[in-house]
Amino acid sequence: MSGYIIQRCLQAVVVMFAMSVIVFVGVYAIGNPMDVLIPLDAPQDVRALIIARFGLDLPLWKQYLVFLGNVAQGDFGRSFVYAIPVLDLIVSRLPATLELTLAAVIGAAAIGVPLGIWAGYRPDALSSKTIMGVSILGFSVPTFWVGLILILTFAVWLGWLPAGGRGPVDVVLGVEWSIFSLEGLSHLLLPAVNLALFKLAMMIRLARAGTREVMLTDTIKFARAAGLSEGTIVRHHVLKLIAVPIVTVFGLELGSTLAFAVVTETIFSWPGVGKLIIDSITSLDRPVMVAYLILVALLFVTINLLIDLAYAVLDPRVARSRAA
């Protein structure tokens, strides 16, 4: 097992290197930030001075090497726009996105998996068909539209919840959180629901498909023959048998939501990293883009590794085949 982990970590390093090159070249191709940052009427010598100060006069490969050298010292550069270290900028925005994402993904799993199991357990019941119908809506209705409708309904018409922003935050363990106050939660609720709908639909479908398949197996028949109650069978047999695909999707969704909650964060003016990356693309803030995309790659590599380790816990056969 430890050999397997080492191998995976080496793979991760290669992936990170490849990703940094792709990101660097890609961001370079998008456009020259100096066209946006330097006023058009600035004199030519001032312009050259600024470009040289940011190191943008160097050829691309030299810029990349300088970047690598800095990263090796833990320095991802400074934001052109905010003029503070990029890492600090991203880290300051991360908790907002983190709590939004966790609320959405965990909520989706906590509600979606039981609903999906029910729908798979009783595929012909009216309640199951209703659940499946709603899940199709969750898949097909675009997130931005749902977001706007949520704001319209709960903020504008009913006036129950705030329309956007993060509201007051409490500092716990040196990080700002909204989940520890009622006011903060009220701000979190709508964007979390908005973000969760798609994932909820996906969890329902996954859990249903898995349950339907498992219910037909001899494992379930044998458990019934031993006199186990249906509740015990679902809790102990079915849930563990359908866990592997659900954990996979849970992890990947967690990652992609962390990285790309852009639409929801924009609609609800949620000050997270999604909004940061959109803003930095608009202003061609290269260091932010590069650092952000590389951190996202790191995030996915880490999550994938964790998912693989979770497999070994959930399915002992996996652990054995890897130890061999």
């Binding site: 001899d218 494992t219 044998f222 006199g227 186990l228 048998l241 399915d315 002992p316």
Partner: peptide, 22 residues
């Protein structure tokens, strides 16, 4: 259900398929 396993039980053909692998 309360009868199954207590007064009448069953053994199937393939234990690979009947025992829960996880």
């Amino acid at each position: 259900r309360r009868l199954r396993g207590r007064r009448i039980a069953m053994v199937f053909q393939d234990p690979m398929m009947t025992l829960n692998p996880v």
